Computed example of a mutant assay.
Amino acid sequence: MLNDIGIIKSIDKYGLEGSLKHLYKEGNYSSRIAYFLIWTNLSGLIGLLFGFLISLGLTIKKKMFWLNALIVFIIALLLNRFGLFHIKIINTIFFSLGNLVSHFGLEYEFIINGTILLTLGLFIFFNKWTNNFAFNYQAKKTNVIPEK
């Protein structure tokens, strides 16, 4: 969640120390920084919770075992807690195209990176191979042949 893009632009333009001096000249800099940090830290947890609820709803609707969604949620929560989502290799792979357009402005970098991740997620979600993998396992377990 980017609730205050001005802070990000200031850090990008002046660096950390220069942006703090620049924000100090404004009257409400402490509340802006506090709200920015709160929403930045909470947005990952909110996203994980929404993803878990969507996954849980789909697994219940498709009559799959609900514990799968819970296990993935717990693993993702632990990865988020220990900061393993922010590994340099992952950032290099998924955010390199956004870095190419960062000189146009920070907004374009966020739009490109968000589009890439959304496209990847939708591809995995609607891919027939991943759906067949999940539902063929379920069909073998219940001895029902899925319709094609």
Rank of each mutant, 00 (worst) to 15 (best):
K13N: 07
F36T: 04
N127S: 09
L70K: 08
I93T: 00
I74P: 05
L120Q: 09
I116N: 07
I111A: 06
I90T: 14
I71P: 02
L16K: 12
Q138V: 10
A34M: 11
G18S: 00
L84G: 02
K9E: 15
A69Q: 01
L118E: 06
E107V: 15
M1N: 03
A139V: 05
L78I: 13
L48C: 13
G15M: 13
F125Q: 01
S31F: 08
I124S: 04
K21L: 11
N68Q: 07
S31K: 13
L20S: 00
I75T: 12
I87W: 13
N80I: 03
I38N: 06
M64I: 14
L106W: 12
L79P: 14
G15F: 02
L37N: 14
L67V: 15
N136F: 05
L77A: 02
Y108D: 03
Y35R: 08
Y137I: 15
H103C: 06
K9V: 07
L78R: 00
E147M: 15
A69Y: 02
L120A: 13
L70W: 08
G47S: 14
L20C: 03
L78H: 04
L122E: 07
K13T: 09
F73L: 04
N132F: 03
G114Y: 07
L118C: 04
I33F: 05
S102R: 12
E109L: 14
F125L: 11
L118R: 06
T130L: 10
A76Y: 08
M64S: 15
F133G: 08
K148V: 14
K61T: 14
I90S: 07
S10M: 11
L78M: 04
L106Y: 15
I8G: 01
I11M: 11
N91K: 15
Y35I: 03
G44C: 05
Y24H: 13
K13E: 03
D12I: 05
I8S: 05
K25R: 04
G98F: 00
L56P: 02
F85H: 12
Y29I: 08
L84K: 12
L117G: 09
S43M: 10
G121T: 02
I124C: 06
